[in-house]
Design a binder for these strands. Structure first.
Lengths: 194, 194
DNA sequence: GACTCGATAGGACATTTGTCCTAAAAGTTG
DNA sequence: CAACTTTTAGGACAAATGTCCTATCGAGTC
């Protein structure tokens, strides 16, 4: 098999495992078993475990960036784009209940480990943050666009955390409804306390 | 030294380390070094590592329960009590920026590890949830007390997550202000979308 | 002072993990 | 087919970790 293919297969498997089990608890042996290659073969594709982490983060960034860009290029209104962002929580409902937010939980773990790749995880946050700021600015809220973006980011993170803690309750759906109502209010010119 | 003293010293050190580094990344050797006892001596006080985790969770529950009860017993109004809860974020500002929320990050990690003690971590959430429900009920919001409690819990979690991701920005203060404003609105009878 | 028992120290042990090395297999090119 | 490169398998190795065992220390008691 081509090296690039194998590499991508490894990254995909590592992405899934790191999401489900966390980075520190995902070993080379685990990934190798899922991919179906020998443990020793890893070091042909990745020199260190951190390299796999970097590749996984890059993969997540590219994946999310594409999703966000698709919404914009589909010609949807800024408000509709932000609503789509909020509804990500519903799209990934089951996984969030089981494993939490793929971005938040990764950042949290890397921050605790003082891991160098924490900056990459922050890039993931920045990707959404900057995208949201642009959408709010397009809605005519240039002055407080960043505050609005951070607010909705935080609420998404919080909703994901509690949905993870109480997976059997319909909490996520309620919170999404409230966030969409908040978005309506913002679109109607509601102010935000600063 | 008395066994109970040593045990409490160990639990206190483990609590701090587990908060700062995470459970899986805190080894017996780390805790032993901080406490100043030999690694082998651990197994006189705790038979397994999981026992230390249980003790740490119990310690956090007792600690938080005492704090919450103190507010109620001081005769503060329900609204004031909830405001105190919101301001926990400011009290622990620096630690939250550095390590995230002690409850949220612990739960997140244990959930990923499928660790049995995850139920204990959920008890920590429940402690705040039930306490908040009582306060909202005392404010005359019996019907939607749980929804209000979950909402403010989620926002606190989200605020802590983002403060951890952007520790150098004054985000936490802004979010606390918004949450207090929300509390004012709720006290004035504002409805919450369900 | 001798004895008892709770508390501690230090090390042994098996397991896991990240890392590295070497040889074989698979694929490509002449 | 032959020479060469790319890719893979399997194991070796050191370090770290959770666990367990045994000898020793120290305070209280007779």
């Amino acid at each position: 098999m081509k090296a690039l293919e194998t590499r991508q297969t490894i990254v995909a498997a590592a992405d899934k495992l790191i999401y489900e089990r966390g980075f520190e608890f995902t070993s080379f042996a685990d990934i190798a078993q899922v991919v179906g290659i020998s443990r020793g073969n890893f070091y042909y594709h990745f020199k260190t475990k951190d390299e796999i982490l970097d590749a996984v983060i890059e993969r997540r960034i590219l994946d999310r960036a594409k999703m966000l860009d698709d919404w914009v290029e589909a010609g949807q209104s800024p408000k509709h784009c932000i609503a789509n962002f909020i509804r990500i929580l519903l799209m990934n409902n089951q996984k969030i209940r089981a494993y939490g937010c793929p971005i938040g939980t990764l950042f949290s773990e890397l921050a605790k480990l003082n891991h160098p790749a924490v900056s990459g995880a922050r890039d993931l946050y920045d990707l959404f943050r900057i995208w949201l700021v642009r959408r709010f600015a397009e809605m005519g809220r240039s002055e407080d666009a960043d505050a609005l973006a951070m607010h909705i980011l935080a609420r998404s993170q919080g909703a994901a955390s509690l949905a993870n803690a109480y997976p059997q309750e319909p909490f996520l759906e309620q919170e999404v409804k409230q966030m969409l109502a908040w978005l309506d209010a913002v679109a109607d010119g509601a102010t935000i306390e600063t």
